[in-house]
Amino acid sequence: MVTQDWLTDAVLYIYALSLLFFVSDAASGNRSAKRVGTGLLVFVWILQGGFLMALLFDRFSVPQLTIKDYLFFVSWLLVSVSFILNRLMRAELLVLLVNVVGFAVLALNLIARPQHNVSLQPWEVARRLLIVHVGFITLAFAILTVTAVLGLMYLFLHTRLKKKKWTHVMHRMPSLEWIDQYAYRAGLIGVPLLLLSLSTGTAALLTEGTIADLLDGKVLLSFAAGIAYAVYLVRRLAGKDDGSKLAGWNLLGYSFLVIGFFVNSDSSFHQMV
């Protein structure tokens, strides 16, 4: 067993198997492989959903969230987003990449150190604000992950086209205009959720009177991500930059989020020890 829990092991193995079928479809256009992969992914989604229902029931009255719980929810959201993308856009390669990220999040979480906690302090008002904050930041992170994947796809395709190096994989990719458009649309959803999470988190700190925590490394990186994403949306709306520069702003904001998530040594805010 990879982990000490049969449910998480089952999810991990079935998820990996589904990705193999999706890779087969992306490489050779094998429709039957896609159907099998989709069926397995639905099963993964159901298992993850069952885990999350049990988690919500168990955590309902306990203001504590483990890293394992948080990343499991992020992975479940990415699977859900991939179903929506596959239904609305029929973008097989994008669905595959989103699920690769979701699998990486899940595998890193389960194989690494699942017992460590992110404690939500039991202040009456501040605690409720922090719960809302965690909900917003989780949704934002899932959606902005899709935005980042689209940004990476844009830079890859743009670079290959500029160098006139056409490959079979590029036949499976949407156009640069399509990628830019949907990255922007995803950003229009994810960035407001990120800003809402920052506002509720700030309100919780002010309510508790721990204003000094606003200078915490994780908080500052989250605000830096919000600024980078705001610049991305404004410049995209104003048409100030070309697509590659916009993708750079997009990935810069996501990088701040990821770095902030793993910063521990100097952080006292939602510290992971």
Results as ranks from 00 to 15, higher is better:
L106S: 00
L215I: 11
L129R: 04
D25I: 06
F51Y: 14
L130Y: 11
G151E: 01
T207N: 14
S265T: 13
L193F: 10
V74D: 04
V79Y: 08
D58W: 00
Y70T: 05
L194I: 11
H171Y: 15
Y254P: 04
Y184P: 00
Y182T: 06
W76T: 06
F262P: 00
Y229P: 00
W178F: 15
L206R: 08
A10E: 14
L55Q: 10
S268V: 13
S82F: 02
M53E: 15
D25A: 13
A54L: 09
Q181T: 01
K245P: 05
I67R: 03
L96F: 01
E177G: 02
K240G: 03
A54W: 08
L198A: 11
G190D: 05
L205R: 09
L237N: 12
G37P: 08
K165N: 10
R236T: 07
G50H: 10
T202G: 08
L215D: 12
V100L: 09
A204K: 00
S267D: 00
R235G: 02
L246K: 05
L233V: 12
S24Y: 13
Y229K: 09
R235N: 14
V219R: 09
F72V: 06
F22Q: 09
E92T: 11
L215V: 11
Y13W: 14
G248C: 02
G260A: 07
Q48W: 07
V81N: 05
F22K: 07
L196N: 08
L144N: 09
T207F: 08
V125I: 13
T138D: 01
T202Y: 03
V118D: 05
Y184A: 04
G243R: 08
W6I: 12
K245E: 08
L195M: 12
L120Q: 04
A26I: 14
G37E: 00
L65V: 07
R172P: 05
L56P: 10
S75N: 04
F60D: 06
W178E: 12
H168E: 14
K245G: 07
T145D: 00
D241H: 08
H158V: 05
S75Y: 01
I14M: 13
F256M: 13
N250H: 09
F141N: 00
A10I: 12
F43G: 09
G49I: 09
L97N: 05
G209Q: 15
G187V: 05
T200Y: 13
L220S: 06
A230G: 12
L252Y: 09
L252Q: 08
S18C: 14
D25P: 12
F256G: 05
V105W: 01
A203W: 11
